[in-house]
């Protein structure tokens, strides 16, 4: 069994809303000062899903794949520290800032080059653009089935996935090879121990360019994108809260009830 987990490195999302900044002219988010980028939340959970398969079937090989700037090596290292075996980094400026389709094409080409892959795991959505399409597009490009928003992934000849639906769950079986996208309902990702982090430093990370994947510049990154980013901005909220007065919580509560009544809300 060979599993590839696609992990994206993103700006840390766990920052106070006031430190979130956009450069409107560049149409880019300004990464918060002094806060290191991290593995996208659902991607660490996708690594966890792969490790749970490996826990049961120890001969499973797990490859951590990322497309990003040189710093994305840290995201791969995190996956390796969680127990991944090998890493592949697509580090090529021409592949950056593409839309999901261009990114999926590049990742799919890398998965083909890795070869012999039985399952690809992705996050349900990346925590930067919140798009949630790359995994399904990789499946479409590879011609594989896909199951999205998994809360559990079990492999036994085929793959059985419990999917999270808005009003419950469904269990779906897919033939392998397949792509599965993973959601937080799967559970917390394991936390690497110091020794595992040290071991990960010695694990191999291959670095590929678009040319290594036989892709030319017109197929990848912005040039290969079908979506245009016409504007990026921060929404402004203009609500002014009216805080309830009162010497005691009871008084505050009574004042709130009265306000709600006056506004015909109750």
């Amino acid at each position: 069994m060979h599993i590839v987990v696609c992990v994206k490195q993103v700006p840390d999302w766990d920052i106070p809303p006031s430190s979130f900044k956009v450069d409107e002219a560049a149409k880019k988010v300004v990464p918060p000062q002094g806060v290191a980028p991290v593995v996208s939340q659902f991607d660490a959970i996708a690594v966890e899903a792969a490790m749970r398969v490996k826990d049961v079937k120890p001969d499973t090989k797990v490859t951590i794949l990322s497309l990003g700037p040189a710093s994305a090596r840290d995201a791969i290292k995190h996956g390796l520290a969680m127990g991944g075996d090998e890493g592949v980094l697509i580090d090529d400026a021409s592949t950056l800032d593409g839309d999901s389709l261009a990114t999926a094409k590049t990742l799919a080409a890398a998965i083909n080059k890795i070869g012999g892959v039985d399952m690809v795991l992705c996050g349900r959505q990346a925590v930067d653009w919140d798009m949630g399409v790359t995994g399904t597009m990789i499946a479409g490009i590879l011609g594989w089935p896909v199951v999205t928003i998994a809360k559990s992934v079990t492999v036994n000849g085929s793959v059985t996935v419990e999917r999270v639906l808005s009003d419950g769950y469904e269990t779906v079986e897919a033939s392998l090879p397949a792509v599965v996208t993973v959601s937080n309902e799967l559970g917390e990702p394991r936390y690497p121990k110091l020794q595992q982090i040290m071991m990960a430093a010695r694990k191999q990370v291959q670095v590929w360019t678009a040319a290594d994947l036989s892709l030319d510049g017109a197929q990848v990154g912005q040039a290969g994108s079908q979506l245009t980013l016409d504007r990026l901005y921060q929404p402004v909220s203009e609500t002014q809260v009216e805080l309830m007065e009162g010497d005691t919580p009871e008084e505050q509560a009574q004042n709130l009830a009265r306000k709600l009544r006056e506004a015909k809300l109750i």
Partner: peptide
């Protein structure tokens, strides 16, 4: 042309299609 929230709702992106 569409407008969509991104970055957990902290930003709005306006996208067009080629």
């Amino acid at each position: 042309q569409i407008t969509r929230p991104a970055y957990g709702g902290n930003a709005r992106a306006v996208n067009g299609f080629k």
